[in-house]
């Protein structure tokens, strides 16, 4: 028999206390678009739903120094509507345009999408290439986990049992441009088969800095370090890009599932990477 409790902490401190007390039996409830599904599917049968939506410490999108801070309970729509992001880091808001659909975007939160740790979480690749930090809070304090080290397996993250995500910190890159390409099986509301984000710094046609991240090609969203190495310092043209992009094969370990075979994922990841880099270089020009 399912048995759930509901608790709405009145302030941040109370949230951290209750999360500490409940440990893994306390489920932060923000948008609910994942949690309610798990409850309905009965993969979670009991526990306390900790309603975190209205705590100000988990809300807001603002720029502090060189960092953009996005509260964990901010919705994807909130990100799309944020003037701060539009002005300071349009790459990130543009990346969220194909997130699920408008109904879900009004509900799903950035913290929830990250915490859920799906290999195809659509917030992950853009955050990974931005070197974003997940700010985890607990009774004993705050720590920053690099987005790239946040995931530990499909559906698993590196938060400890008493921690919650408070916010996501994104250092605003001084230079460069980025793009996020997502491949789904249909055009509206699709779960990514694979997705690629890149951030490129380009100096007189030479790539002087590059970060590449992919979703759907490994147990967790990954940074493609081999491909990054291959591309950095290179002058890219139609002739060398394919060979360089092929190095991605050393970074990815896709599986075959309902949405696509491993071979297909490999092939389209390479193609998407090429497309992403060429598009970025064009906008950089």
């Amino acid at each position: 028999m399912d048995n759930f409790k509901y608790f709405k902490p009145q302030n941040f401190k109370e949230l951290l206390n209750v999360k500490y007390d409940l440990s893994s039996a306390g489920f932060p409830l923000a948008g609910g678009s994942n949690l309610l599904i798990y409850i309905k599917e009965k993969s979670i049968r009991s526990g306390t739903l900790i309603d975190i939506t209205s705590l100000k410490e988990l809300r807001g999108i603002k720029k502090t120094g060189d960092t953009i801070e996005i509260g964990a309970a901010e919705t994807i729509s909130g990100i799309l509507e944020s003037k701060v992001l539009e002005n300071e880091l349009p790459f990130f808001s543009v990346s969220m345009r194909d997130f699920a659909n408008p109904l879900i975007r009004n509900k799903a939160t950035i913290g929830g999408n990250m915490a859920d740790a799906s290999p195809v979480a659509d917030t992950a690749p853009p955050l990974l290439v931005l070197d974003a930090k997940v700010v985890a809070a607990s009774k004993s304090g705050i720590r920053e986990i690099p987005a790239n080290e946040f995931f530990s397996g499909p559906g698993k993250n590196n938060l400890s049992k008493d921690e919650i995500i408070q916010k996501i910190n994104i250092p605003v890159p001084e230079r460069g441009s980025g793009i996020f390409l997502k491949l789904g099986q249909r055009k509206g509301t699709s779960i990514s088969v694979t997705s690629v984000a890149v951030w490129i710094v380009n100096d007189s046609n030479k790539i002087t800095g590059i970060r590449i991240s992919l979703g759907g090609v490994a147990p967790v969203p990954i940074r493609a370090v081999n491909a990054e190495k291959a591309f950095s310092g290179k002058i890219i043209d139609e002739n060398n890009i394919t060979a360089l992009a092929e190095t991605l094969k050393e970074d990815i370990k896709p599986i075959s599932d309902l949405r696509g075979s491993a071979e297909y994922r490999t092939a389209v990841s390479i193609n998407l990477l090429k497309r992403a880099i060429l598009t970025c270089l064009k906008t950089e020009e």
């Binding site: 659909n101 249909r186 055009k187 509206g188 699709s190 779960i191 309902l258």
Partner: peptide, 15 residues
């Protein structure tokens, strides 16, 4: 394996 409308895909307005 395709028991919901997230896995059994039907066309949306964008398709």
């Amino acid at each position: 394996l395709t028991l919901n409308l997230a896995t059994y895909l039907i066309p949306t307005s964008k398709d």
